[in-house]
Each structure stands twice: as structure tokens, then as C-alpha cells.
């Protein structure tokens, strides 16, 4: 369990990091918290020639208020996201989902940006990012650009990041005062999601004014349960509305099969968990 040899660089600015990646060519790899990359390297499933460590770039860490959005630096750890007051007030769903990631050790090292860039369909932060209409701020050799979550996630472990791109920060539109719940289903406490549902809703006078539902691990990328959202909005916030809406949770999903779940079971879980997630969000 020793990685193959590689060159290591630890730049102190994003510009330098992008240059280091461009110089190293195709076989370079960005290192964030290392919680996904290091196992891959140690098992020699990947053997990059150069590893560019973002750990020394101060500008990538932290959460700030930008008017209508909360901006989270890519290198902000799960631990810090969980505890951040801005995230709590304006993107509660993200805090709730982050609570369920792995264990305290992993949350102290793993980063928000790393999770999104890694794009594991079982990762817990992709569906919330999608549900909250987050935007990815990316810097590459051609400068900065912004990509919506819907465009960012492309396939299993695949995003719109080019090899020399760095995910700099994530702009999350404020969902101030929205109720939220992340319903995760796994076999043991530290395991990845078999299926999970990210739900955030805004109620107004006893009915559901707005709803955003994201599904984890129901396809090669996170999925927005738009049929469920539509079935919720404008209806009374009661058990019957939720039950009927949750029936649509598996619409248009194409989950993978593994030893833990076949397609039928995953789609069934998506419905049950969607009902539970919305209900739990409403209860608070």
C-alpha cells in the first residue's frame, strides 16, 4: 500500500497551481484533502507523475457572504462547512448532508471542493449542490469561468473540469429560512450512501411554496427529482401531499446495480426515502 513514485508540488496561489498542472501535462493530479485520492494512489489504481497539493493556498479556504449567495472555498473542510453559520442560515441542506459524510477524521481532512470534483455518484454533497442550484467557479489556463451544477457533473467520477482546471469555489444561492433534511440510507454508519435524498422546502401559510429535491446514487450523476418538486409545490404541507409526491421519486432515474441494491430496490428506496426526507424537513 505504497503509492508509485510521483513529483510533489505545493504552490501557494491558484495561478501557480494552474501553471503547475499545465506544465505537468495529462498525468498530473490535484490533491485536496486526500481522502479519496490517497486510497486510489496507495492501491495503485492511479499513478500520476505529479501531484499538485492545494493545501497551501489560503484563498481556497473559507465561507463568505456575497449578497444573494454564500461562497464556499473549494478547500473548506467538511468539518468547517458543518459548523459555518452562513451555511447554516442560507444553505441548511448542505450542512445536514455534510453531517452524514464518513466519520470525524475524514471530515477534518476531506474538502467540499474535493467531494464535488471527485464526483462519486454515492458522494453526499453532489445532490445538495444540484438541488441548491450551486455554481462552480473554475480556473484554468484560459482564466476563470462559472459552471452550473447541472453542467458540472457529467458521468461517474467525471466532471467538466479539464486536467489543468482547478475548482476554486462554489457559489450557493441563498435559501434563507428553508427547511432541509438529508435522508441517507447505508448499511453501516460509516458507509457511503446506497441511496440518499436531499430535500429542502419553503412553506408559506400551511402549503409548500417551493421545493428542491436531489437524489444521491440514483444514476451516474446526481439527479434532480423535478416531478416530486412539482407535485409538492402549491399543495398543503401534509402527509397525503408528501406521499403522493414521493411516488414520483424514481421517475427518470437509472441507478446502478451492486451487491447492496438492485434497480428495483434502489428505486423503491428512493420513493420511501423521499417521503421521509420531505416529512423530516417539514418537521424540522
Amino acid at each position: 500500500m505504497i503509492p508509485a513514485p510521483f513529483d510533489y508540488v505545493a504552490p501557494s496561489t491558484v495561478d501557480e497551481a494552474v501553471r503547475a498542472l499545465a506544465d505537468a501535462g495529462e498525468d498530473a493530479k490535484v490533491l485536496a484533502g486526500g481522502q479519496s485520492l490517497l486510497p486510489v494512489l496507495r492501491m495503485r489504481l492511479a499513478a500520476p507523475t505529479t501531484v499538485v497539493d492545494l493545501g497551501k493556498i489560503g484563498e481556497l479556504t473559507g465561507v463568505r457572504d456575497e449578497g444573494d449567495a454564500v461562497v464556499i472555498g473549494a478547500m473548506t473542510t467538511h468539518y468547517d462547512v458543518q459548523r459555518d453559520p452562513l451555511v447554516h442560515d442560507h444553505a441548511l441542506l448542505l450542512a445536514r448532508a455534510t453531517d452524514t459524510v464518513a466519520d470525524p477524521q475524514v471530515r477534518h481532512r476531506g474538502t467540499f471542493g474535493g467531494s464535488l470534483a471527485h464526483a462519486d455518484p454515492a458522494g453526499d454533497l453532489l445532490a445538495p449542490a444540484l438541488a441548491l442550484d450551486a455554481e462552480m467557479v473554475i480556473q484554468g489556463t484560459g482564466g476563470r469561468r462559472t459552471v452550473s451544477a447541472a453542467e458540472f457533473f457529467q458521468d461517474f467520477f467525471t466532471t467538466s473540469l479539464a486536467p489543468e482546471d482547478i475548482l476554486v469555489e462554489v457559489r450557493v444561492p441563498k435559501h434563507t429560512g428553508w427547511a432541509a433534511h438529508y435522508e441517507k440510507f447505508n448499511r453501516v454508519a460509516q458507509a457511503w450512501s446506497m441511496v440518499a435524498v436531499a430535500a429542502t422546502v419553503r412553506a408559506e401559510g400551511g402549503s409548500i411554496a417551493e421545493a428542491r429535491i436531489g437524489l444521491t446514487n440514483m444514476a451516474s450523476i446526481p439527479v434532480r427529482a423535478t416531478a416530486v418538486e412539482q407535485a409538492l409545490v402549491g399543495r398543503p404541507a401534509d402527509a397525503e401531499t408528501i406521499r403522493a409526491a414521493a411516488e414520483h421519486a424514481a421517475d427518470g432515474t437509472s441507478p446502478t446495480v451492486d451487491g447492496n441494491a438492485d434497480v428495483e430496490y434502489r428505486q423503491h428506496l428512493a420513493k420511501v426515502l423521499t417521503g421521509r426526507a420531505v416529512e423530516a424537513a417539514m418537521v424540522g
Partner: peptide
């Protein structure tokens, strides 16, 4: 028989990580 067990979690041999 032999149905349980999980996915490879974050380690996907075919992709070797992100991107």
C-alpha cells in the same frame, strides 16, 4: 448467493479517481 457487499465506494478502478 454472494449478493451482499458493497460498491467500491470512492475507489473506482476503471476511472482511478476524478476527471
Amino acid at each position: 448467493e454472494g449478493e451482499a457487499g458493497g460498491g467500491l465506494g470512492s475507489i473506482d478502478p476503471a476511472h482511478g479517481g476524478a476527471q
